[in-house]
């Protein structure tokens, strides 16, 4: 859900950049040097995940997985997503310099909200509850990102209202898909390597 260059108004871009800079600054203070390789390697996993195209009916969509990123990284999700988006910008020209701040915010804030909401829950002893929460985590992260993109568009110009609504509706299947994938992935990690889920 990148917003390309040249769409948003200057106040929106500046607010986005400011908030992202603050959040990244705060989270860098919390990261210790010994955690840097871990955050970076997980950040590259999510970069690679965004290159995976999954079929959905006649179309195919690429994964976002910001809910899972939030669960595994906590506050470190902010710099991790910033770095991944910056590299995508340079390597593939998706997004760009002026939209880096707002795009990071739109992806990373939902990730952190999901971290606080579901971090305890997905480690629950009850498998069923953990699965439900994992689904909600994947679903909600994309939903929140979609809402943020929509709000940002409407802030730029009220004329975007219709387009923003369409965008949100079009992303509904993506939310379901992300929820399903997050559920399976959390289930896998719970079985294979539960200690990954206790980072953050």
């Amino acid at each position: 859900m990148h917003i390309s260059e040249g769409i948003l108004s200057a106040p929106v871009l500046i607010t986005g950049a400011g908030l992202t800079a603050t959040a990244v600054g705060y989270s860098l203070k919390k990261i210790e040097y010994k955690e840097v390789p871990k955050v970076a390697i997980l950040s590259s996993v999510f970069f690679v995940a965004s290159l995976i195209h999954v079929p959905l009916g006649p179309a195919s969509i690429h994964l976002i997985l910001n809910g899972l990123t939030g669960l595994l990284l906590g506050w470190s999700a902010f710099p991790a997503i910033l770095v991944a988006l910056a590299l995508q910008g340079i390597l593939f020209q998706f997004g760009g310099i002026t939209t880096l701040g707002i795009n990071t915010l739109n992806m990373a804030l939902p990730a952190i909200i999901c971290f606080y909401l579901f971090n305890q829950g997905v480690r629950s002893k009850n498998n069923f509850i953990a699965q439900i929460l994992a689904f909600l985590c994947g679903f909600l992260a994309v939903l929140l990102s979609g809402i943020m993109v929509a709000v940002v568009l409407v802030f730029t110009g009220e004329g975007f209202l219709q387009a923003a609504k369409l965008l949100l509706i079009a992303h509904f299947p993506v939310m379901i898909l992300e929820g399903v994938l997050t559920t399976f992935c959390i289930g896998f990690l719970r079985k294979v390597k539960p200690e990954i889920l206790s980072i953050g």
Binding site: P37, K38, A40, I41, L42, S44, V45, V48, A49, I52, V54, P55, L56, G57, L63, L65, L72, L177, V180, L181, T182, T183, F184, C185, G187, F188, L189, V192, K193, I196
Partner: peptide
């Protein structure tokens, strides 16, 4: 890859496997 649960489970496990290996690698 098709539109079904089997495909999604497979992709989720694939990502999970990459995560597990990457976690060990980072250490």
């Amino acid at each position: 890859a098709q539109t079904n649960f089997h495909t999604y489970r497979t992709f989720a496990y694939l990502i999970g496997m990459i995560l597990v290996r990457s976690y060990d690698r980072s250490k």
